[in-house]
């Protein structure tokens, strides 16, 4: 982060990413409410939210390789992307509980408890909660080294989310292949990098 930027521009891009980030949810909601999502708008809206949760997780994971391989530093967006992933997962779950399952707890609770498809998705959301809660300067300062350790949970969360997505359909489709492929690639990158010994680097 060599380049100096004005704090004003920083704040603007910071808020900008949230504004842009919520566009897919807002657009999909608006289409659903106005009859633009086809015969089963609830399912379409629910799936859109889930897919974007996964996309934001993928983007979060792409920040480090982009920096290391392409020299593109987007680190300042990572917190926003991670929080967007959490909010989309939370909205996805809320729509599942309300619009989809109609808050009929007698069928929802057994589903979450017993059906791996639902359980895995739920577990991914639960794992994102502590990450979202500690995505602030205060927590980073307080937790120190443990913060990085804690935030490695994102690898588990994205894996669970990926399997949840795979189990959601009867057959594999192209959208799934592309997304799961990216998850595997980004997790694989970290695995490979951790196995390859690196030359000592001088402190910057």
């Amino acid at each position: 982060m060599a380049m100096a930027r004005s704090p004003f521009v920083d704040r603007l891009t910071g808020w900008g990413i949230y504004v842009i980030g919520f566009v897919p949810a807002a657009a999909s909601f608006w289409l659903g409410a106005t009859g633009g999502l086809g015969a089963d708008p609830v399912r379409a809206f629910e799936q859109t939210l889930g897919l974007w949760a996964l996309r934001f997780l993928i983007l979060t994971l792409a920040i480090t390789p982009l920096r290391q391989l392409a020299g593109v530093n987007l680190l300042r967006f990572r917190r926003a992307l991670g929080l967007l992933a959490f909010w989309y997962a939370a909205m996805h779950f809320t729509v599942y509980l309300t619009l989809d399952r109609g808050l009929i707890w007698s069928t929802i609770i057994p589903d979450i408890a017993r059906r791996p498809f639902i359980t895995l998705g739920f577990a991914a959301l639960v794992l994102l909660v502590p990450l979202a809660l500690t995505s602030n300067r205060l927590s980073i300062r307080h937790l120190g080294k443990n913060w990085r350790l804690l935030h490695r949970l994102v690898y588990v969360a994205v894996s669970l989310a990926g399997v949840h997505y795979l189990l959601a359909t009867k057959v594999l489709d192209l959208t799934q292949v592309v997304h799961i492929g990216l998850v595997v690639l980004l997790l694989g990158y970290r695995l490979v990098r951790s196995l390859i010994p690196r030359p000592e680097r001088r402190a910057a």
Binding site: G35, L37, V42, D100, D111, I118
Partner: peptide
């Protein structure tokens, strides 16, 4: 179904976007 319950269903087009139609 091993991955989802068959106890309930959603009637397509029955209640639009804001009712679950389940």
């Amino acid at each position: 179904h091993p991955r989802w319950s068959q106890a309930t269903e959603r009637r397509i087009g029955a209640s639009g976007f804001f009712g679950s139609g389940r």
